[in-house]
Design a protein around this nucleic acid. Structure first.
Lengths: 198, 198
DNA sequence: ACATTTTAATTGACGCTGTCAATATAGACT
DNA sequence: AGTCTATATTGACAGCGTCAATTAAAATGT
């Protein structure tokens, strides 16, 4: 038994097709029927693997979130960094991912299309939050009982900036190939907030 | 001439109907046909006033954004506040608006449904940004050339936190009827970032 | 090996949507 | 009155999500 059925492993092929459509046409372009066409199967074939559109897009978001988290972890491991640099890397990887794949980032937070109460997705998001807390904690910029506040503030700031940028505010004139001056200035501001505890 | 036509002023009635549907069923529930039904007209009547769905929802978002801005301005005028308190009020009004009317807040930033390059909407958003900058500037927490960075950081943090909350992260256990401890802690953190310039 | 059961894919249908074209009607203007 | 414009209605079309009925392939049991 090499191929379980006609197509082989349609479940994975549907996710691949979804990413292609997502990048090309945005979240709204990832319809069940379009995904089926892209994968070369009939319009109702996907229902065997994902019971409705929300389920498909939630699975897709879960995969993308895992990729992004892996991306962050890999980058943090590959370089020898100071604690405050690690926070910058965390933010920068997120930001560059969003600018490189705007539609993928949009899907991750699309409440109308993705079910954010899905256990598997929730698990990845909590791992992400955990990683964020670990970096804040490692930077020793606040007391232990403030770690969550600082972590939420950092994530909120980065996510909020990305979201505002993706809607067209604060146009790209801020950015260059070698860096993101605005983001870096904001990160410096964030770091400063931890230096006044006396 | 009291009523220009059958219905009177359908253009406004459509916006009213849209808000009702938005609050009840979210952005996806605001379809042209549902709005027409809610307003008691035929399914193609709206096309005379809004040429397509995106145009209708962009007009709706513009109205809601104006309301929110008016809300902020009114609150800032009605009370006698210190500069740093004004920043908190700015953030808190935004936050409470989003928690009271989550679907309205979601629509404001829904890139798939709203055209954020629309001149009228862009104008309101720029006024909003201007108001944010004015408060940062008034608080004298940074040099003039850093005002934009601080304003963007503040708006990003508040917007990001709202957005994360609306997707279900950081559940409401943080909030009480009298306050929003987490938000307040984050605002204090933000204020601290301005106190290290020596 | 053959028959049976389970899994996976197809086809066709339904009601919903956005949008357009054709039509009808109310009001304003001359 | 008659004409013109703005506004609303009706009907059609394709695309969508979803379901039911059907067919086909693969796994299983004997």
């Amino acid at each position: 038994m090499k191929q379980p059925f006609h197509h082989g492993s349609l479940k994975l092929a549907l996710l691949d097709a979804s990413v292609v459509l997502l990048d090309m046409h945005g979240p709204d372009g990832v319809t069940i029927r379009a995904v089926a066409r892209e994968a070369g199967v009939s319009h109702a074939a996907p229902v065997n693997h994902y019971k409705d559109r929300e389920t498909l897009l939630t699975a897709l978001a879960t995969v993308l979130f895992k990729d992004l988290l892996a991306c962050v972890i890999k980058k943090l491991r590959s370089e020898d960094l100071l604690a405050n640099e690690r926070i910058s890397v965390f933010a920068t990887v997120l930001f560059e991912y969003a600018m490189t794949h705007p539609n993928r980032y949009r899907l991750l937070w699309h409440t109308g299309l993705v079910d954010h109460s899905d256990p598997e997705l929730l698990d990845v998001m909590n791992q992400f939050y955990g990683a964020c807390c670990a970096e804040i904690s490692g930077a020793k910029m606040c007391t232990n009982r403030d770690v969550e506040t600082y972590a939420i503030a950092l994530w909120s700031m980065v996510h909020g900036y990305i979201d505002l940028r993706l809607t067209g505010m604060f146009e790209a004139r801020n950015d260059t190939v070698s860096g993101h001056p605005r983001l870096e200035a904001m990160l410096e501001l964030f770091q400063n907030s931890g230096r006044t505890k006396s």
